[in-house]
Write a protein that binds this DNA or RNA. Structure first.
Lengths: 139, 139
DNA sequence: AATATATAATCAGTTTAACTGATGAATTTT
DNA sequence: AAAATTCATCAGTTAAACTGATTATATATT
């Protein structure tokens, strides 16, 4: 029995690795990586978030988040303003330049995903997404 | 539309991250990490592999592989012998101590996976695995 | 057979991200 | 008001990916 390649962890890792590698290649001209794209996506969907909010939701270390936001701010994709209700934290906002980046790569991201998921048909892909969402929302 | 958490990449990453974290915790007493467990699992399933074989199959950098094998050898889980047909490469073999480690943690790995996949029923879990295998084998 | 090319493993050095622990400023609790 | 907590930050450590070079061996070319 070949059990080494039968674990969910192994299989998930392989599929994810493939997606991330391809997606990262498409982000090179924009000088950000897949993780930073994810952070930007989160800020877009959750405006006025603090760095802590993002850290917790995306499970990225708080100290690493500092440098991600530093970087995204330097490139003009994100704006830090103090939260007037709690001046310890920031209210993060995506800039229009940041939105442009998201839009211009969103379709590409989906293309990549479809490419990797090509062995599945429509219905199977939908099922897969349903499963993943079900797992994630109960994590 | 909340699109940031709808991508396959994001969802796969979350599920995997959860599995890996939990599994890694269970490996602490054995002083290896999830990746090294994976390497060991591969060697067990593919005896006489070279370091290059493992690197390519698991997509782990060749230079990183050197230190993984160094480490696993030091702990007595793996044995390097020269491949008599090509003395540039090694024939890697798992030791009985290595096999013991695999066995003793294999059930634990499956428990973790089941725990994370708990929101799915039997049939759904099987479907998920089928999907992943289908994708992986055509990568 | 001699020479050139290619390959497996290794080593040294750089880069990136995760992580630990500490600090300052602001906020909340007692 | 004092103590405890929280958010962001910084300095330093660790782990892994990566680049480029080297050594030993193997293969291909002349």
């Amino acid at each position: 029995m070949e059990k080494w390649n039968q674990s969910y962890g192994f299989l998930l890792g392989k599929v994810l690795q493939r997606m991330e590698t391809k997606f990262a290649e498409g982000l090179v001209p924009y000088h950000i990586n897949a993780r930073q794209y994810g952070v930007l996506l989160f800020i877009n969907g959750n405006p006025y978030s603090s760095q802590k909010d993002i850290s917790e939701n995306l499970q990225i270390d708080r100290t690493t988040m500092v440098s991600h936001i530093d970087y995204l701010e330097t490139l003009g994709f994100v704006e830090r303003t103090r939260n007037p209700n709690d001046r310890r934290s920031y209210s993060l906002m995506i800039t229009s330049k940041g939105k442009d980046l998201l839009d211009s790569r969103w379709e590409f991201l989906n293309d990549i995903e479809l490419e990797v998921l090509a062995p599945l048909n429509n219905q199977e892909r939908q099922l897969l997404k349903d499963f993943l969402i079900k797992i994630w929302t109960t994590l």
